[in-house]
Design a protein around this nucleic acid. Sequence first.
DNA 1: AAATAATTACGTAGTACTACGTATTCCATC
DNA 2: GATGGAATACGTAGTACTACGTAATTATTT
Lengths: 211, 211
Amino acid sequence: MPLKIAIADDHELIIRGFESMLQTFTDCELLFTAINGETLLRKLQQQQPDILLLDIQMPDHNGIDLCKSITSTYPAVRIMALTNLEETHYVKKMLRNGASGYLLKSADPTTLLKAIDTLSKGEQFIDERLQKMLLAESITGKRKSTQVLLTRRETEILRLIAEEYTNQEIADKLFISLRTVETHRLNISQKLDVKNTAGLVREAYLRNLVS
Amino acid sequence: MPLKIAIADDHELIIRGFESMLQTFTDCELLFTAINGETLLRKLQQQQPDILLLDIQMPDHNGIDLCKSITSTYPAVRIMALTNLEETHYVKKMLRNGASGYLLKSADPTTLLKAIDTLSKGEQFIDERLQKMLLAESITGKRKSTQVLLTRRETEILRLIAEEYTNQEIADKLFISLRTVETHRLNISQKLDVKNTAGLVREAYLRNLVS
DNA sequence: AAATAATTACGTAGTACTACGTATTCCATC
DNA sequence: GATGGAATACGTAGTACTACGTAATTATTT
């Protein structure tokens, strides 16, 4: 029985690109395609693929939530996260939220085949470059941003910093003293191993605290 | 005689996507595809298409220079600029530098067909939404906030700011004085209408200057 | 060749952030 | 009821950024 594949991406061009690649594979059958999250969820109710190629940046749904809800409703569906983002942060985030694979859109047909093959065997696939980056990170211990846990207050303050509030404005907004905000800020900077405001805002983005 | 088409894009997925769309059109023949600027220039020496679908953001060549040199060497080739960038600035820049059309990668097959058809008649094609934006701009004389144009130097400096470089470090790196960096920084802040470093970094992210 | 835009740079002041250390209160968990 | 994390706050200094204004030099475009 051929492997049933589905594709979800908000660009018809991308869907057709994958479709074209899939056609050259034996033992693969394209079950359906979806141009947005809504369509995807509707079609999943009718039939479930073995593997779902899922763009994690569709306008109407964010990839993490989609991934979560799909894997909880249809545990048999294995999800391959699709993206252009070469960030280890996203890889971790997606794999922690139910994805079984992480593939870049720059992948060539050989890589795609290997990725699908790996998932079909029940194993995890991660893009080679990202795999190396993850490895390097865990060895050097650097850029372990997502492992560091900020407290609720710290998260709140980090978000406000990223939204252009000054320390004084944050203090006023949260009814705490300027010094307290400064203390929090210093603690956050140390936890995240960043040097200045720019680094804080960067982390806020990586952590999806701001859109 | 069928219309000869060529595609240049650094993503195989995109090439296949267009290929797939083109197959459904009668009177269109895919002459060749190219995965980078180098390959494109080499293949153009052998044979010239009527219409070239050209990704303007390839790693080894920038779209503007490629466009310029191709139209001057092969004036018969009509270039359709391909991009994800919904910025009127790029449209103008490309059309001034030899492109005959401007198409977004989010285009559906109908739009693609219309675009190719328009170019084959010797007319100019511009993505509908961008056409409206250009029109609105020329009437109001204003750009939307996301379309503020930074100079090359400003863009460079904004990227460095987002990468946690201090003004002094930027000055050292670019061999300019601290005051110059401060001036640039102030100008950028005014152009982008932001209050502080956080706002600058936020804009850098929105503009995809950092990943 | 002229006009325009970009890049460079300085003066002066004020504001905001960074970096240490120290320390109290609150609250949950053992 | 003891321990420890979280949140609160201050002192002191130094560094970095913001906000005006002005202006010369170099590229680019017309």
